[in-house]
Structures are given as C-alpha cells and as structure tokens.
Design a protein around this nucleic acid. Structure first.
Length: 134
DNA sequence: CTCCTGACTCAGC
DNA sequence: GGCTGAGCCAGGA
C-alpha cells in the first residue's frame, strides 16, 4: 500500500579521508574498496556509494571510477553497481554488454529488461557495512 | 591552459 | 510524466 518510498538517508558522515598530505585518487580508491565489499547476490547504486563516501553529489565520479574497474586489480564487481533505478546503465561498458546481466543472474540477481528485479530488495547499503572494511 | 565528455542524481518546468 | 539544466571530479584532446 501507499507507495511512500522516500529515502531520508541520514547520511552518516563517516568519510575516512586522511589528509595526510596524500590525496591522489583517494576517491576512486574508496569507490573500488566499497564496491569490493558488495556481497554476492546484492547490488548497489552509484549514488549510494558516493553518499557513503560523503560525496553524493559526485555520483558521476563513481561511474567514472568504475570505468577502470575492469582494468584494475583486484577485480571489481562493477556489475553489482547499477543506477538509482536499478537499470544496468553500465552494461554497455562490459566486454559483451550482456555479461553484466549474466553475472548478476549467476549470483542470484534477477534481471529483466536491463533492470534489476526487486532492486530495492537486493539493494545493499555501503554505509551500513562501511564499518566492515578491513 | 581551456573545453568537453562521462557507467549519476536532483530540481524545475 | 518526460525533458532540460546544473553540479560533481577527473581525464583526454
């Protein structure tokens, strides 16, 4: 009933930025780190990752960072990262675009019409597990 | 150095 | 209900 699906998102400021004189690609590194923490059979959105990093406004950078996900090591489950609608926006960047859907389905995530089924159910909030790093 | 694009998202019309 | 513009940061031409 009622479809009042709002996302208040308290936004916990847990940004673990360490201005130790070394900033480099901290942002990208953090994104990869969070994505790697995504459990199997779960998915998350770019904005969620960006928000967990304290840069929800930089949701674009998350996607941009994933651009090199297939080139960095260890491998990053970029296929578990979709947009806020649960659409496989980045599927076109995979070797074969269908690879993303196959990987998701293989992990138990149903995908239909390039969209994650029950995305909200499979949604994995990095902010809730951000503390589980290391 | 300047301009533009990009796997996003929100607000406005 | 869909389209447009603006904001974000980084990298390439």
């Amino acid at each position: 009933m009622s479809a009042s699906n709002k996302k208040p998102s308290p936004l916990t400021k847990l940004s673990t930025v360490q201005p130790s004189g070394k900033k480099d690609d901290n942002f990208f590194q953090q994104v990869f780190d969070v994505v790697r923490q995504i459990p199997r059979g779960r998915v998350t959105s770019y904005g969620a990752i960006a928000a967990s990093l304290g840069a929800k406004t930089s949701s674009r950078l998350v996607g941009y960072a994933m651009n090199g996900a297939g080139s960095i090591r260890p491998k990053v489950p970029a296929h578990r990262v979709v947009n806020r609608n649960g659409d496989l926006t980045g599927m076109h960047h995979f070797s074969p675009p269908e690879r993303m859907q196959q990987l998701l389905e293989k992990e138990g995530v149903k995908v239909e019409n390039n969209r994650v089924v029950d995305f909200k159910k499979k949604f994995w909030d990095p902010s809730e597990h951000a503390d589980d790093a290391d």
